[in-house]
């Protein structure tokens, strides 16, 4: 149970049940779609950019607790950041969940997803929305796939 609580922390369970910024953004300036064909997780990400500053972020989709919480936390952590800072967060987050480097102190709330590193089969759930973010920032039209 304790081990499982490292993965399913209260914050994660909370964000998965009541995802923040869970809506369609009609006036988005950039969007991208992410899909995990193995488990069927889907995410649609909406960004409103002013110059290189992310003014607003929202998402819609369906998925497991990890992917939903990860998307919800992403939307909270990106508001007001520049695209360069978003890219830095991507790098830091990736290291955090794959355990491939010291987690960046700047990750803030995102650090609750650290437990994912103990569940290799679930890393993709946490990173799907981040890959989708990258696609949105690059203006890619093809849906992002984890496979």
């Amino acid at each position: 149970m304790e081990e499982l609580r490292d993965l399913y922390q209260e914050v994660i369970v909370d964000h998965s049940r009541r995802p923040r910024n869970f809506r369609v953004m009609a006036d988005a300036t950039a969007t991208a779609e992410g899909y995990n064909p193995l488990c069927g997780d889907k995410v649609m990400l909406y960004l409103k950019l002013e110059g290189d500053v992310i003014r607003d972020v929202a998402f819609q989709g369906s998925g497991c607790a990890i992917s939903t919480a990860s998307a919800s936390l992403l939307t909270e952590s990106l508001k007001g950041k520049t695209t360069a800072q978003a890219e830095e967060l991507f790098e830091g987050f990736h290291k955090l969940v794959t355990g491939s480097g010291a987690p960046d102190k700047e990750l803030g709330k995102l650090a609750v997803l650290r437990g994912v590193r103990e569940y290799p089969m679930r890393v993709k759930c946490a990173t799907l929305v981040w890959h989708t973010l990258r696609a949105a920032l690059k203006g890619e039209r093809q849906p992002v796939s984890t496979e």
């Binding site: 193995l38 069927g40 497991c64 607790a65 990890i66 569940y119 089969m121 679930r122």
Partner: peptide, 19 residues
């Protein structure tokens, strides 16, 4: 979500399919 069910069960030693 079924994936979360499967992960929790796995930690109890139970292998099921989810997806």
């Amino acid at each position: 979500h079924p994936h979360d069910i499967a992960t929790v069960l796995d930690r109890q030693g139970v292998a099921v399919r989810a997806g």
